[in-house]
Amino acid sequence: MKFSTLLAAGIALAVTATAAFADDISGAGATFPFPVYSKWADAYKKATGVGLNYQSIGSGAGIKQIQAKTVTFGATDIPQKAEDLAKFGLVQWPQVMGGIVPVVNLEGIAAGDLVLDGPTLANIYLGKVKTWDDAAITKLNPSAKLPALPIVVVRRSDGSGTTFNFTTYLSSVSPDFKAAVGAGQAVEWPVGVGAKGNDGVAANVMQTKGAIGYVEYAFAKQNAMVNTDMINSAGKRVKPKLESFAAAASNADWNSAPNFNLVIVNQPGDASWPMTNATFILMYSQPDDKAAAAAALAFFDWSFTNGAKMAEELDYIPMPVSVIAKIKSSAWTTIITK
């Protein structure tokens, strides 16, 4: 289960061991964007000869590493507040996006057969909707054959940016969920079993009849899991796919979010997937090692220009061009590299 993380850690170690002598860009943090950062890094190394040493140790640990100045950039799934950024003199911007999808294991139900809305999903995770033939679900799915099976709620046991975005969404659509649980990386779940990592949740849902879970879209797709559709904030039924994630991303109002402090769940728009999440980069505005900071910025600039297709191949969503322009003109200009 933890194999992928172990492998990631192993690769990170191997990279540190073999290539630390080169002027590699060093970064640490979120596990969610690790595959796409690795892919970009491989291509970037081929193009420029500069490597990336990224340790996917988790958002919280990444924040601690950048605060301790052991890395050139930190990566986090949870945008930092202005006062936290100011305290350490950090600059923040979103680098790439993804989507979170509900996945289910029900006999005779295929991907896209089922649709849920935010309040119903929240009530399932509150333990108020207990069985699959509950009126709240059948009302949304009049044609689906739903069994009288109890719903086995599966969620993350480890602290996670995915959980943060998922609970932020449920809190934004359900006042009950906001009052009883709230949003966070690790929360007090009223019901359900906890599994470690996206892969743990995925494996658990696939094994348990009547289970529901939430995973990053890439995991659902790679494991060919049965995902549900969602009713978005415009009241429209949407499917989880790159187009609906991109629609949500382009509708997100980055312009009125100072420091890009924005959680992009529940965005407006007819085509928007409601659970879209961004992952962020943290760097010092006055870095001790200006050359290293310049190298890191060059890598991110290259990724914005050349990395969109690679990101989509791995089921990530590249940042919209308008947002990239804003990142370059605002966040990046405050970083002193000379």
Binding site: G60, G159, A186
Partner: peptide
């Protein structure tokens, strides 16, 4: 084991 890595 579950929560330590992402706690603060």
């Amino acid at each position: 084991a579950s929560e330590f890595a992402e706690s603060s």
